[in-house]
Simulated scan of single mutants.
Amino acid sequence: MNFASFINDLREHLRQPLPGHSAHDLMRAEPIGRWRPKLDHKTPPRPGAVLILLYPEDGIVKFPLIRRATYAGAHSGQISLPGGKAEAGETVVETALREAEEEIGLDRSQAEVLGALTEFFVIASNFTVTPIVAAMHGPIVFKPDPYETAGIIYGDLFDLLREEAVLKKEILAAGQYRMMAPHFEIEGEVVWGATAMMLNELRVILKDVSTD
């Protein structure tokens, strides 16, 4: 596969109308039993961004996910894309690149931004998140921040395109809420929730992108 040609084709597709919530809904987890998430928040959602960073390695297009460190929060210990909340005056691109630099040691000056996916509201943490898609053309050595990142998981982008890539199982959210969760399994880790929903939008787009 010619990585440069693939990246150029993907950039063009990201400029076209996006599948958006129709792709998100395919990976939406559903509560089991009477419990339902509370949808009312007392404050407006905070802006944030995550980074889907694509890079070639041994003929494969890969992307990093992180395991969040354990903390008192809604996403403690979860598998997610690098990212976080915006600082004052930042664009979503600046947020995504800065957070990736802080969390996995990305040299943001080397990242080629291709575009953005659909803005996504994360109910559990009251964030409006924009997924930014970027590429790097050379080998990458990641340096995870031990305070924010408990580890890095390396995804194979085209594994997401397999018919059997979408799985479903019952999971326990926040250690107490039963959910039936569509998910991807990446390096033995269950990737579900907002991260899976955002990745699925990219998955839908990739079905029309040339990988020759």
Rank of each mutant, 00 (worst) to 15 (best):
N2Y: 11
N2M: 12
F3C: 10
F3G: 05
S5N: 15
F6K: 11
D9A: 13
R11F: 02
R11D: 00
R11A: 10
E12G: 09
H13W: 11
L14C: 10
R15M: 04
Q16Y: 07
L18K: 05
G20Y: 00
S22E: 15
S22L: 15
S22C: 13
A23Y: 08
A23L: 07
A23K: 02
H24V: 00
D25L: 03
L26S: 12
R28W: 10
I32L: 12
D40G: 05
D40P: 04
H41T: 12
H41C: 08
P44H: 14
P45A: 12
R46N: 11
R46C: 09
P47F: 04
G48M: 07
G48E: 01
L51K: 07
I52Y: 05
L53H: 12
E57V: 01
D58F: 01
D58P: 01
I60Y: 02
V61P: 01
F63R: 02
I66Q: 11
A69C: 06
T70R: 11
A72S: 12
G77D: 04
Q78A: 07
Q78L: 13
S80L: 11
L81R: 10
P82N: 09
G83H: 12
G84H: 06
K85V: 00
E90T: 05
L97C: 06
E99T: 06
A100M: 05
E103R: 09
I104T: 04
I104A: 04
I104E: 06
L106F: 01
D107F: 06
A111F: 06
E112C: 10
E112F: 05
V113R: 06
G115H: 00
A116C: 13
T118N: 09
F120S: 00
F121T: 00
I123E: 14
A124K: 13
N126L: 07
T128A: 14
T130G: 07
T130W: 06
T130E: 11
P131M: 08
I132N: 05
A134K: 07
M136F: 07
H137E: 14
G138F: 00
G138L: 00
P139I: 00
V141H: 12
F142I: 04
F142M: 07
P144Y: 03
D145Q: 01
T149N: 05
A150D: 13
A150W: 03
I153E: 02
Y154V: 09
D156G: 08
L157D: 04
L160A: 08
L160Q: 05
L161R: 09
L161A: 08
R162M: 03
V166W: 00
V166D: 09
L167N: 13
K168G: 11
E170S: 10
E170I: 09
I171S: 07
L172D: 01
L172Q: 08
A174D: 12
Y177K: 04
R178N: 14
P182C: 09
I186E: 10
E187A: 12
V190W: 06
V191C: 01
T195H: 13
E201F: 09
V204S: 03
I205E: 00
K207E: 14
K207P: 02
S210F: 03
T211L: 14
D212C: 11
D212R: 14
